[in-house]
Design a binder for these strands. Structure first.
Length: 344
DNA sequence: CAGACGTGGTC
DNA sequence: TGACCAAGTCT
């Protein structure tokens, strides 16, 4: 067993670093706005899923000022499909604050005080955009640390210990001098070598320093607390058109599930299959099919119905009616995009 | 502090 | 097919 060498990791990074849209090339200066935007999008979200959203977002909102000036509905529409929609609300609020103060704060405390920025993102932006010598601890770094130090305690309980161990990795002179590269080297190591299922230990620059590799348990770490079962829920969604053929949508409440997003109207979702009686003022009701959708903490069977409705009845049915002229409206979260796309 | 909070890809 | 997981944060 050796000690994990910051120099060895950086040498590996110089040869194998991923090229990503939000990542600058060697010698270029990072733009805090782009670093921040990418970090928010990447929270609990894969690189592949983020790439097209990042490109569209940057085209629509090229600067923090452009984003700050944008309308809330446009920000939500650009985020639709990416999930965890409180990120979009906090993103916009954060942009307004940062634009008003003339730029991002460059300290961890200053960053963490902003909406949507927690311990991880504050350190990621501080390291990547401002060169602060800190180790942002995400799922990748947690996994690397759990294996490197053979931590057998399960997460999330082991999180504080893993974070403390991770901070010991950047104490070398090269890691201090190249804080941005060092943080991203840890991400890349976790994403391409020290992967969750079948780690490529033979290719790892820290192979000789890895306690889990020495014990032959690298692939088993980190241990996780047992998951709770996902309950099943049922719901109904109405695809109602007015006499002009426009589709009735509603703006959902700002907080909670799919908060702030557009959706199809329908009764609250329940643990039992609901009665599909059409609301008052709905005519020519017809069942189209069922959409199955899995959220983080429950699964949903959503029965989809078509029908016709008048303008007055729509106001009674929906708190905030939004009429869509488009044949297939965009800007909907995944669940309602599926329901709208259901052939019928 | 444990639970809420989306979605799509992988094995 | 289903369980797991991905650059977490908020309450």
């Amino acid at each position: 067993m050796t000690t994990p060498s910051d120099r060895a990791l950086l040498r590996w990074y110089d040869r194998h670093r991923r090229v990503l849209p939000w990542r600058v090339l060697p010698g270029e200066t990072a733009d805090p706005y782009r670093v921040w935007l990418s970090e928010i999008m990447l929270q609990q979200t894969t690189v592949a899923a983020v790439k097209p959203y990042y490109a569209r977002f940057l085209a629509a909102f090229p600067t923090i000022d452009a984003l700050a000036r944008a309308g809330e509905a446009d920000v939500f529409a650009a985020w639709a499909g990416l999930g965890y929609y409180s990120r979009a609300r906090n993103l916009h609020a954060c942009a307004k604050l940062v634009a008003a103060r003339g730029g991002f704060p460059d300290t961890i405390a200053g960053l963490e005080a902003l909406p949507g920025i927690g311990p991880y993102t504050a350190r990621a932006v501080a390291a990547i955009a401002f060169g602060a010598p800190v180790v942002p601890v995400d799922g990748n770094v947690e996994r690397v640390a759990a294996r490197l130090f053979a931590v057998a305690e399960p997460v999330p309980g082991a999180r504080p210990r893993l974070a403390a161990l991770a901070q010991t990795l950047n104490t070398g002179a090269e890691a201090q001098a190249r804080a941005s590269d060092f943080a991203q080297a840890l991400f890349d190591l976790g994403a391409t070598i020290c992967t969750p299922r079948s780690p490529a230990c033979a290719l790892c620059p820290w192979r000789d320093a890895c306690a889990a590799q020495a014990q032959g348990i690298a692939a088993e770490l980190p241990l996780r607390a047992p998951k709770v079962a996902r309950p099943q829920r049922f719901g109904i969604a109405w695809r109602l058109r007015d006499p002009a053929g426009r589709l009735l949508l509603e703006r959902r409440p700002p907080r909670g599930l799919l908060g702030g997003m557009l959706g199809l109207p329908g009764p609250a979702w329940t643990a039992e299959r609901p009665d599909a009686a059409p609301p008052a003022g709905v005519n020519d009701c017809r069942e189209i099919g069922t959409v199955r959708h899995v959220f983080t903490h429950f699964a949903l069977d959503l029965q989809v119905f078509d029908g016709r409705i008048g303008l007055e009845a729509a106001v009674d049915l929906v708190a905030t009616p939004v009429w869509s002229d488009a044949a297939s409206p965009t800007g909907l979260p995944g669940l309602f995009a599926k329901a709208v796309a259901l052939p019928g």
